[in-house]
Amino acid sequence: MTVQEQEQNKMEDKIRVIVADDHACVRAGVRSLLGQIGHVAVAGEADSTQALAELLDSCACDVVVTDLGMPGIDGESNAIQFLRRLLDQAPHLPVVVLTMIHQPSILMGLLQHGVAAIVDKRDMTASLIHAIDAGLTGQGYLSDHACAAIAKAEAPQPRAGVMSAGEWKVFTMYVSGMTISQIAVRLNRSAKTISTQKRNAMRKLGLETEADVIDYACQIGLT
């Protein structure tokens, strides 16, 4: 048996994890942490949603550990829409979200769409391995900070509906600093239509005020 075949057999005996984050230091931290655990191995790394999609097509894995605030596909500014599609297409693949987002409605929405676990990056050292194991057994997992964030909401409920591509585009243009009128001109739509799409996007994200919009945009790297 060749060295390559031996290494392949070793990998198959372990939990194969794909790690996705646009910050090399975070990926290195996750790789180092998982390297200390005998039954887990990093099968591949990605620094964008596009790279993650390509890796999933070419690399066998048992769990995906991913950030949300990464460059997305087709101009998307984060990985949320991609993860929604992934979870619809591969519902049995455990996805562990590693994030600094602390908005209850967003975290609840991720759980609603089938994310196996959410780990706040501040809890990574203490919680990531537990989250991976829990995701594989279908138990679900929230790290301490993620659990506390959700608990802050009064009877938190995930918002109904998923944003359309048009609503997301309007929302990202708005948080980039464009006015409703400017967006209407750019997209050749009426200001009333753009305003409605912006409100719908806010409602589906669970955002009620302009301060909420700014906070959300900062959390996922839109600003």
Rank of each mutant, 00 (worst) to 15 (best):
H113A: 13
G161L: 02
I101H: 07
P94L: 12
R159M: 10
L98S: 12
K121S: 11
Q139W: 10
H145C: 04
A131E: 15
L111S: 04
A155F: 14
Q157V: 15
G135Q: 13
A153F: 02
K169D: 00
L128S: 13
A148C: 05
P156H: 10
I150S: 06
V96M: 14
A134F: 14
A148F: 01
E154P: 00
F171S: 01
V97W: 15
A146D: 10
A146Q: 08
A149H: 07
P94H: 14
P94V: 02
Q103V: 00
V115D: 12
G114P: 02
M163N: 09
Q139D: 14
H92L: 13
V115R: 05
M173W: 08
V162I: 07
V175T: 15
P158A: 15
A116K: 10
K121L: 11
A131V: 10
K121I: 13
I132K: 04
V115Q: 06
A155P: 00
H130E: 15
P91D: 14
V162Y: 02
R159N: 03
A153Y: 03
L110P: 11
L107E: 00
A155G: 00
H130S: 15
S143Q: 11
I118E: 10
Q139K: 15
R159T: 02
I129A: 08
S164C: 01
L128M: 09
I150L: 09
A116C: 09
P94R: 15
I129S: 04
L142C: 12
T137V: 11
A149V: 01
V175Q: 14
G114W: 00
F171A: 01
S164V: 01
L142F: 05
D120W: 08
F171N: 03
S105K: 06
A116T: 03
M173C: 08
S143V: 09
H102R: 12
G166I: 00
A160F: 02
H145W: 05
P156S: 04
Q157C: 04
E167H: 03
I129E: 15
I129F: 12
A148S: 07
P158E: 06
A165P: 00
A148M: 11
G166K: 04
G135T: 09
I118H: 13
A126D: 15
C147W: 13
Y174C: 03
V162N: 07
G140L: 10
V95Y: 05
A148E: 12
L111V: 06
L111K: 06
D120M: 03
P94E: 09
G166P: 00
V175A: 12
K152D: 02
T99P: 07
L110M: 15
A116R: 12
P94Y: 09
G138K: 13
A126V: 11
H113V: 05
G114E: 03
V115C: 10
I101T: 14
G166W: 00
H102Q: 08
I106S: 09
A146P: 05
V170G: 02
Q157T: 12
I106D: 00
A160V: 01
